[in-house]
């Protein structure tokens, strides 16, 4: 199940954040900031993209390094929210 969330998050990254990568080729364990090189603007885009994709509300204090470390950690966070 978490994998399914991961696939949708990758799609958000590619479509909404304009990440120039093949979604299939992104390793779910790679880190968003260091490996994928997302800056604060891109991370905010990702937050909004995830809210819309999954119909959830992410509170500002939930946007932590731990939850947003990688696609895998983000998928676990989203799964617990929906």
């Amino acid at each position: 199940m978490t994998e399914h969330f991961a696939a949708r998050i990758k799609r958000v990254l590619v479509e909404r954040v304009d990440l120039d990568r093949d979604p299939e080729a992104i390793d779910p364990t790679c880190t968003l900031r260091d490996d994928l090189g997302l800056d604060s603007a891109a991370l905010l885009d990702l937050v909004v993209g995830i809210e819309e994709e999954f119909g959830i509300e992410v509170d500002t204090d939930e946007i932590t390094e731990e939850r947003f470390e990688s696609i895998a950690s983000l998928a676990r966070f989203v799964e617990a929210k929906v």
């Binding site: 604060s40 905010l44 500002t60 946007i63 932590t64 390094e65 939850r67």
Partner: peptide, 18 residues
């Protein structure tokens, strides 16, 4: 402003360093 305060006081906030 409220968001910024939340980011400032959440120690491991993703956007804190920004």
């Amino acid at each position: 402003r409220e968001d910024i305060r939340t980011i400032e006081k959440t120690p491991d906030h993703l956007l804190r360093s920004s």
